[in-house]
Nucleic acid binder design. Structure first.
Length: 313
DNA sequence: CGAGTTTGACCAGCGC
DNA sequence: GCGCTGGTCAAACTCG
């Protein structure tokens, strides 16, 4: 509500939000199945702070998309959000843009550590009141680059190789399902994620990541596999250690369904507050509802995305 | 006892 | 200005 993220069904509409700075250009309508299939996407991503290498872009291009879809494993919805891209942000977002850019880089020590996350992880010495007033009154909330994806799974919290601490839960308007807030347990890491179920299809879990991990995964419980999330984060965050997890979609096991969404259930999420989130890109692969993999195969894990040996240690 | 979760309260941003 | 909603905090609680 606060933010201008809006329902966006790439298959049926090219409508963007009123302040949508989606950056997809004029040919959005042609890209129902867009999935990192062009240099334009690369530009978008780099604009958001996700830096793809050309090779990687190629490797997860249209062929991969088709392969995934052709495998009958369903479709992947991939949404990227960002509070960066100062040039396309509303004026009042400029401040947070700058700060977000800085805090986005773990190596950058921030005098601008007004990020609530940084505050909570790094300013333990402060009294709660001081702490609060500093971060909440003085400055606007900082948004880090985000991306979201939907996963058909019965498990809310997917294994992604990182450890998360839940710090909040909220009821979501127009949804019977609460939204959970997690942050990375690594004290130096400011990454957060939100997990919520689609109100339209309770079997779909919408996971939104914010920020980039500045550390390696902690390992992989339950058999040492990496999850969907890490798999996709690795596509988007080659600058961090997870990049070594890069794994071309074309090599995904056929039975690996990242997200299986019937065409009638295209993304209608009422997005939450995304103060800086005026830019959203949704990448969508072919949908094949008939052959959608059963949700139970996920078991909250997508480790099978990454073949043995590619795991991080 | 430490780590993680729950949950009510608080705050900021936005729309009206 | 007010109310609504999302996001976060932090004390209390649970669990291993």
């Amino acid at each position: 509500m606060e933010d201008k993220e809006k329902v966006f069904n790439p298959a049926t509409t090219t409508e963007f939000t009123s302040e949508s700075n989606w950056g997809l250009g004029a040919d959005d309508s042609d890209n129902v199945n867009l999935f990192f299939s062009s240099n334009r996407d690369s530009n978008i991503l780099s604009e958001f702070g996700w830096n793809f290498q050309p090779e990687q872009l190629n490797r997860i291009g249209p062929e991969d998309r088709l392969d995934l879809a052709g495998g009958g494993s369903g479709s992947l919805w991939f949404q990227e959000r960002s509070g960066l891209s100062g040039s396309i942000q509303p004026v009042d977002k400029a401040t947070s843009d700058a700060s977000a850019s800085a805090s986005n880089n773990p190596s950058v020590s921030s005098s601008s550590s007004d990020d609530p996350t940084e505050k909570s992880t790094g300013s333990i010495a402060e009294t709660p009141s001081t702490n609060k007033s500093k971060t909440k009154k003085g400055q606007k909330r900082i948004r880090q680059p985000r991306f979201a994806f939907m996963t058909k799974t019965e498990v809310d919290n997917l294994e992604d190789g990182y450890r998360w601490r839940k710090y909040g839960q909220k009821a979501v308007k127009n949804s019977p399902f609460p939204r959970s807030y997690y942050r990375c347990t690594n004290s130096k890491c400011t990454v957060k994620k939100r997990v919520e179920r689609s109100s339209e299809d309770p079997t779909i879990v919408i996971t939104t990541y914010e920020g980039q991990h500045c550390h390696h995964t902690i390992g992989f419980p339950r058999g040492g596999v990496i999850g969907h999330e890490a798999g996709f984060a690795s596509h988007l965050v080659p600058s961090n250690p997870m990049s070594q997890f890069y794994y071309p979609l074309s090599q995904l096991p056929r039975e690996t369904s990242l997200t299986s969404i019937p065409e009638s259930d295209h993304y209608h999420q009422q997005a939450g507050t995304e103060a800086g989130g005026s830019s959203t890109v949704i990448m969508h692969s072919e949908t094949n509802p008939q052959s959608a993999a059963p949700a139970h195969i996920h078991q909250g894990l997508l480790g099978d995305i990454v073949p043995p040996g590619m795991r991080n240690r």
